[in-house]
Structures are given as C-alpha cells and as structure tokens.
Amino acid sequence: MPLYSCNAAPGAISEDAKPKIAVDITRIHCDVTGAPPAFVHAFFFEDAPHQPLDGKKAFMFGSIRAGRTDAQKAQIIEEITASIHTHAGIPLEDIMMLTSDTPAKWVFEGGAVMPEPGEEAEWLAKHHHEPAD
C-alpha cells in the first residue's frame, strides 16, 4: 500500500509510457507523503471490468493509507493526472482519478501490519524491509 490501479482504453497508455508514469507515481507519492518507495505499487490494466472507465480514456484509482490530508490527496491527484497526460498524451478531461483511504492497521505488508503514516522509519528498521533505491 499504496496501490495505484490504472485502467485505460486499449492502446491509450503505451508500453513506453507505463514505466515512466510508474516512476512518477512513486516519486509523487513519496514526495507528498514521506512514505518509502518500497510500499508503492502501480498496476496498469486495459479495459478491465473491475474498474469501469465510465466514458474516460483512463481511470486511476489510488488506495492509500488513511491519515493523509485533503491537500496531500489533491496534490497527488493533480500531479499523477498530469503525469498520465504528459506521458500518454491523454487529454486531462479524459482522465479520472480518485483516492480511497485504507486504515494502515488493516494492511499486512513486508511481514507485518503496516505502520501508521509517519512511523515508517521505525517500522522499516524493526522489520528489516529493504526499501527500494
């Protein structure tokens, strides 16, 4: 967690664009929240029935740990939407993005219940989870 799940119309996000957007997602999430990169998952789908496009070209849904401020969430949405626009060339009005809060205590990752936002360093030291570069 977080999990950023992106559904898009077939061909709307190229193979070249996906890793670039994933890098941006990781950077944006970590810059805004202070979370370590190791926690950030970005998954891309095409025409996935579990995440209807509702007339858009791309729909990004971010499941993030509860405790982020409205301003942080707004910044994440603005910057990730801009990344999709930049790398995939999809007009901003054809991109939808939402976030949903998940309590950290509901999530188990790296062999332990996840830390509350802001408690990651102690958690990482305790559980020897290796953050990514």
């Binding site: 950077r27 998952h41 891309f44 789908f45 990514a132």
Partner: peptide
C-alpha cells in the same frame, strides 16, 4: 485479477507482488 505483463510496478520496478 491478473496484472498484465509489463503493467505491474512496485517501487518503480517490475512488480513481483501479489495482493
């Protein structure tokens, strides 16, 4: 749900994660 090959990333790298 299967994440398509080349579509999964964790920490910006190709993902081997399951949720």
């Amino acid at each position: 749900i299967e994440v398509p090959k080349t579509g999964g990333f964790t920490a910006s790298k190709p993902s081997t994660s399951s949720l």
